[in-house]
Amino acid sequence: MSSLSPTVFTKAEIIQASRTADWLILVFAFLVFTGGFHVHAMLTMGDWDFWTDWKDRRLWVTVTPIMCITFPAAVQYWMWDKLRLPLGATFTILGLLFGEWVNRYFNFWGWTYFPINFVWAATLVPGAIILDVILLWSKSFLITAVIGGLAFGLIFYPGNWSMLAVLHQPVEYNGMVMTIADIQGYHYVRTGTPEYIRFVEKGTLRTFGKDVVPVSAFFSGFICILIYFIWHFFGRWYSTTRFIDQY
């Protein structure tokens, strides 16, 4: 292989080919990561992300970052270790958001008529940028897991607060105190909605309210550290360049 003649290709040809390949591969990787990550996300934390009445102060805050640090960790490993690109987390999270927003608009709203302010997708971009920046600065998967993973969990709720705050305003409805998100859920009955008024938030959340989010986010960050570790090894395993003789 190394005995190739320099005259086989010109330098200009190779530069042009390299740029063309960059675009093709960028789009291909974006689409495939989007597909795999979106399936993973919608089936492990999707219900919390689909509807605003599910965007509660405990499980949404806990589950979403834990489930969504997976692909970023794996792809960060590949992009950093093999390509020296500190973009893996942001790249995959943008793919996930692309898949989710296209769906919420063209299907949740476009086909089944749920209003967009009931079905918007939570953003994970702040956490993804933090993960990439910490990897770029530290050049260490250990530090990225511990600091970045914790930050990924902690930043999730504040990152979404500007979209969610208005829907958590209290209102009185038929003599009961609810949030606007509760009323959205009550009016937009879904197949999975029980025949009674249900608050997704359970237990003492509404009297214990001010402490639940930071506790949940901190717990989420703790698990994110562990999940990052496991999934960065997934990235390593999936980056194998092995050929096999028999299958």
């Binding site: 291909f28 990787a29 495939v32 990561f33 597909g35 795999g36 990550f37 399936v39 993973h40 089936l43 692909f71 794996a74 792809v75 590949w78 093999k82 997934f234 990235g235 999936y238 980056s239 194998t240 360049t241 092995r242």
Partner: peptide
């Protein structure tokens, strides 16, 4: 099986 999309890294 969705995780297998990561095979594109290798």
């Amino acid at each position: 099986f969705g995780w297998m999309a990561l095979g594109l890294c290798g």
